[in-house]
């Protein structure tokens, strides 16, 4: 349906900055705020969501001519739920520590509107190749923001990045950063900074 000429590379890149799911569309904020107490958690969450969005976009795009529009949301959810369960069990089996620290937020990827949004807005209307690139870009954008947010919160809240001590010894970690208010503060400042950068770019 997309009649506009969008190059494949643009299809991929738009999810990373121009239509970033978190910074621009503000989708999927619940896991974003809840799990990013460390960079590692952010990375695991981001990769799990990326896996789900890519796999379900491919399947939905494949089935887009078969699925009747009346039951499309139900079908999307079943497909997404399947991949989420696969990711959840995979983490529980091979990365039990990460799985237990992410808790219920992996199963909750099912209701992440970013993922359903991609199926509804893109994969169900575009070919497999484009859908894959779109999902990959969006997933990557999501992951990057989560890792960045996790890194900021871990750096100031625990003095480490990916568990490695980086702050000087006498640094007193700001406990607030690994508490919920820190998540809102850090995300708010990140969104503000990205808007500011966008404005700067437009001026030039």
């Amino acid at each position: 349906m997309s009649k506009k000429k969008v190059t494949l590379i643009q299809e991929f890149l738009k999810g990373i900055w121009k239509e970033n799911p978190i910074l621009i569309s503000l989708l999927g904020l619940c896991p974003t705020l809840a799990v990013t107490v460390s960079a590692e958690n952010g990375l695991a969450m981001g990769l799990a969501a990326t896996f789900v969005v890519i796999s379900s976009s491919i399947i939905v795009s494949m089935l887009r001519k078969i699925i009747p529009s009346e039951v499309r949301i139900a079908s999307f959810i079943v497909i997404i739920a399947t991949f989420v369960t696969i990711a959840d069990r995979f983490l529980a089996a091979y990365f039990p520590d990460i799985s237990s620290s992410l808790g219920p937020f992996i199963p909750l990827i099912i209701v992440n509107c970013m993922i359903l949004g991609r199926q509804e807005a893109f994969a169900s209307k575009n070919g497999i190749g484009r859908s894959f690139l779109d999902a990959f870009g969006v997933g990557l954008g999501f992951t990057l923001v989560l890792v960045l947010l996790g890194t900021i919160r871990e750096l100031f809240g625990s003095g480490t990045i990916f568990g490695i001590q980086v702050m000087w010894d006498s640094f007193h970690p700001w406990a607030v950063m690994i508490l919920p208010p820190g998540a809102f503060l850090a995300l708010g400042l990140m969104i503000g900074a990205s808007n500011w950068l966008n404005e700067l770019g437009e001026k030039k």
Partner: peptide, 28 residues
């Protein structure tokens, strides 16, 4: 068609998940 498509998707999903569960459950 609606019933058929949804049923097939669900069945496939169930089959895939049961295989995956069989595979991961002992490890977990």
């Amino acid at each position: 068609k609606m019933i058929l498509v949804l049923t097939i998707i669900t069945v496939i999903s169930g089959v895939v998940l049961s295989y995956w569960d069989n595979f991961t459950r002992p490890i977990i």
